[in-house]
Simulated scan of single mutants.
Amino acid sequence: MLQSQLCKEQDFQRQWYADAFMKLKAEDALLSLVNNNITDQATAPLERLAYRFHRKLWEWCYIYEALRERGALQPNKKGLGFGVGTEPLTAAFASHGCRITATDLDFEAAKAQGWVATNQHAVSLQELNGEGICDPDQFANLVTFEYADMNHLSPSYEEQFDFTWSSCSFEHLGSIALGTQFIVNQMKCLKPGGVAVHTTEFNLSSNEHTLDHTLTVLFRKRDIEHMVERLRAAGYFIDVDYTVGIGPIESFIDMPPYTHHPHLRLQLGQFVTTSIGLIIQKIH
């Protein structure tokens, strides 16, 4: 069973990854995301690759598998997604019969932060089933879309959901402290026994210096450890494996302007970052 961990090259060889990759139509979703975001972040359109080592694919597959193996993806289970953008997870969860509330930042705020211009913001239900993963009628029946401020969660969400998720969203809340507070706060949205799965940026370069109080912050190991302490103190369960992979592909660092192949680790400012996945369970 998956646990909280860093993105690793070896995961791309696992059967769970292959199964999730096919279910999510992840290649098509990634091509759409990257090729509609050709700004200073990429030099040329991403073409179909024989083998795809991209951390965004890992995040989607990791979230899907972590929820699947914990029994969350069953008919009438209720899920709450944050900062969903145009990712394929909403449609995949609905295809299992889950009732999904998908949320994103309101349009004007997202536009001001650049998410609209780079095709990373959702404004309609149709965009959340763009790859046709879920039957359209079933999708329309099971999925609702709302605007939500992750720094100010609605009290109406409290103890309403069997699972919550986000894919590299809470590092954009303004600071490490705000991102940490979001993770603690969103646990209140879960029913007893519920599970939260979230991915974010992990600073591989330093446990001292990092990016903070910027549009994108980088969580150091000590920041994650502080978050874990707060979660455990509140009665939640989380166990983290901080092992860093040393494979040849994950040792490559994608530098700006990004090629996205491979893209397990990348340079942000003066730091090298990758993704970390967090699985948190609400026991009581």
Rank of each mutant, 00 (worst) to 15 (best):
T39M: 01
R230V: 00
I38E: 06
S154C: 08
G277H: 01
R52H: 04
C61M: 06
I100W: 09
G114M: 02
F163R: 09
L125Q: 07
P248E: 12
E108C: 00
Q270T: 07
L178A: 15
L6F: 11
S156K: 09
N35T: 10
L231H: 09
I224T: 14
E208C: 00
A122F: 05
S4H: 11
G247P: 10
F161G: 03
K25W: 09
L30T: 13
Q186W: 05
T274M: 06
T144N: 08
K282V: 00
M150L: 06
D135N: 13
I246F: 12
F182P: 13
V195R: 01
H54V: 03
G247L: 11
E131F: 06
A72E: 11
L215W: 05
S156I: 11
P75E: 01
V272L: 08
E146I: 06
T200Q: 04
A50F: 10
H121M: 02
T259F: 02
V195C: 08
N203F: 01
N37H: 07
I276A: 14
R48W: 15
K282R: 15
Y242G: 02
V184Q: 01
G81T: 07
E208A: 02
L142F: 10
I280V: 15
Q270I: 04
P88S: 12
D212P: 00
Q3F: 06
F182Y: 07
D11Q: 13
Q113N: 06
C134Y: 12
R99C: 14
E229W: 01
S156Q: 08
G193C: 05
T144F: 02
T243G: 05
Y258H: 12
S95T: 10
Q181I: 02
W115K: 01
Q113S: 12
D40Y: 04
R52F: 04
S166Q: 03
I253S: 15
Y64H: 15
E131K: 06
L33E: 12
D223T: 10
S175N: 03
Q186E: 08
L24K: 11
M1A: 08
Q181K: 09
